[in-house]
Design a protein around this nucleic acid. Structure first.
Lengths: 347, 347
DNA sequence: TGTTCTACGTGTATCGTTCTACAGATTTGT
DNA sequence: ACAAATCTGTAGAACGATACACGTAGAACA
């Protein structure tokens, strides 16, 4: 629209114009921008004044050509999981006060889509990636880690060296579930878990299963008395699985949905069968996401301090971008948040 | 790590190397990349083969220096609203088969954050922006529209010429609510609406209010019999507002939560007061988002075909990027989806 | 006084694309 | 058969930052 002072035809103010206005070199302005070494207070002030006056904002694509883009890519495995917002809040906390901006890609639970998003982020020269609940294997994550700094959330890789991770202790969480259910007087707990591409030990749901199984064993359960039912990642399948469990022989008297968004569907399925929660069947989730607190759900859950996890993932990523090359793996301890859905003994 | 054929030290394949490998000029490869004019089938094939062979992926930052970035920025006003995923699915539909990648920014309900995100997207040379439920004024959106193509969702601006929009007819939807409640035998409907920065006619909640009021008038209600209670955008405030309504004089026998995520909180609040839904109080939401279908919610809602809206927003944006300069405003008609939460007469 | 540091600034090649201008080859029209 | 038009492909200058390699001035030291 309008021409700039230097006569170019462009709506945008460039570093050159700032330099002209401040009466310094382009390189000097660049230094101020990056708080690089070798800038006097006087120059700092002059340049900042010119930037403010002209309304200068650096052109990120141009920065990306040689330096950083100050962009963090966040891969969100899916956008319907009510737990993720807490993590995002934490990431925002961790990035607050820095120049870094988080931009999100949404995976919709598909590995192909996740790969495409990761590529898109790398192609856009993002300085670092945070992956939340992704379905990529360790090898795939490591391949990407060679192109950008990476921190993963909801993926256990304690031995990984090329990237960092932030998690809660899912194995402990799975055990907490059993302990809580038994302490409430439930006799036959079952777990509904996620069936997805085999991620092995890295998989959050498998860690929870492991903890569940170990605690059941410790309590004296054995063999087929330890029931773990896999359900695909969609609501109809969860409902069908619950029905199968409850209408089959020797039905469970409590069901652990591996994550809240599963447990909320379990709740729905149980009630649609005309059974009462918590009297006939106890239901417990994992994540302690906001819907748990609604009166109509009143769902007992395991809190994993999502905000704390998000904050630490961001911190670790920034450290790695700053140059750390050794890996760090943050783990927080989960806690039971008891609500009515498992209150068999009136409280 | 490894050196490329042309001897540079970089892990990335560049357009230059593709050109060398295919035995054509750099410009030719660029043309293939953009399906630009003047490329023979033979060359097309040669170049594509080399790209595949070398695993070439264009460097988006570099593209952004002169041309497009093939990136669509999506501003998500908040990530907790269970309706938005439908819109996102629609956007994905609309972008499928194109080179465009959607990247999301999350506003957390703050105008300042939204502005920062929009700036970040423009600075990153994104080709177009889709804004979902944003709180920016028409003037602010128009200012941005001079720097990038824009389509808004959940923001009514039928007279805007600088940007496109996709919406459902919220005024009609507000009227549908009243018609449905009265037809179910409710006598004193009230609405809980969102109180936020004054966006005037553009605001979705205000359009729904307008429809609600008009339909109430048409049904013979007047003055203080038309109750609209504003609540701030957080759960405690919604609960307090519901309590005020139901424990005050002349309590309503049905409550319309302006959006599902409010209505779910209304449901929670009503039940926490020991009242039965739908017998004592009917509850109705807006959006027909997935949680409505859970047995424990069984929430009547107004469906606004979110996927369709998202798809059209993407379509309009792509058209605008391709050069259209006149505005288009897509509107779809809403529909009642009746569930138990308003089933006063047994069905 | 001369030498060596250190702090501060500058000049400019460079990143990987796109795009304009144009040249050569081929086809079309008469 | 010759000019005009069309089609393919090329060369090389941008785009707006960063970062390297320097230059310079003043301070510190002997």
């Amino acid at each position: 629209m309008d021409r700039t002072a230097s006569g170019r035809a462009s709506g945008r103010v460039t570093i050159r114009e700032v330099a002209e206005d401040a009466g310094v070199s382009v390189a000097a302005v660049s230094k101020v921008l990056r708080d690089a070494y070798g800038v006097s207070d006087l120059m700092q002030a002059k340049v900042r004044a010119s930037m403010a006056k002209l309304g200068y904002r650096p052109h990120t694509a141009a920065r990306g050509m040689r330096g950083q883009t100050y962009t963090i890519g966040v891969l969100l495995a899916d956008v319907r999981n009510p737990f993720f917002p807490q993590l995002i809040d934490g990431i925002d906390d961790g990035l607050a006060g820095t120049q870094y901006v988080p931009l999100f890609g949404i995976g919709h639970g598909s590995t192909t889509t996740e790969e495409a998003i990761v590529h898109a982020m790398v192609d856009r020269r993002m300085d670092g990636l945070i992956m939340i609940g992704q379905r990529l294997t360790n090898a795939e994550v490591e391949a990407t880690a060679r192109e950008a700094a990476i921190a993963v959330i909801g993926h256990h890789a304690p031995q990984a060296t090329l990237f960092d991770s932030a998690n809660n202790d899912d194995e402990r969480g799975g055990a907490l579930v059993v302990e809580h259910l038994l302490s409430q007087g439930y006799k036959r707990p079952a777990m509904i878990t996620l069936r997805r591409a085999d991620l092995g030990q890295a998989d959050v749901s498998q860690r929870r299963e492991a903890g569940f199984i170990a605690a059941m064993r410790a309590a004296g359960f054995e063999g087929s008395a330890i029931r773990i039912a896999p359900a695909a990642d969609d609501i109809d399948n969860v409902t069908a699985t619950v029905r199968l469990l409850l209408e089959g022989p020797n039905p469970p008297d409590a069901i652990f949905g591996w994550a809240d968004y599963y447990a909320l569907e379990v709740l729905s399925a149980v009630r649609s069968l005309g059974l009462r929660v918590p009297e006939d069947v106890g239901v417990i989730g994992y994540d302690n996401s906001p819907p748990c607190a609604y009166t109509q759900n009143d769902l007992t859950s395991i809190d994993q301090s999502g905000r704390e996890i998000g904050r630490n993932a961001a911190r670790l990523l920034l450290e790695r971008i700053a140059g750390r090359t050794t890996a760090e793996h943050f783990v927080v301890q989960p806690q039971v948040v008891a609500r009515r859905s498992t209150a068999r003994r009136p409280d």
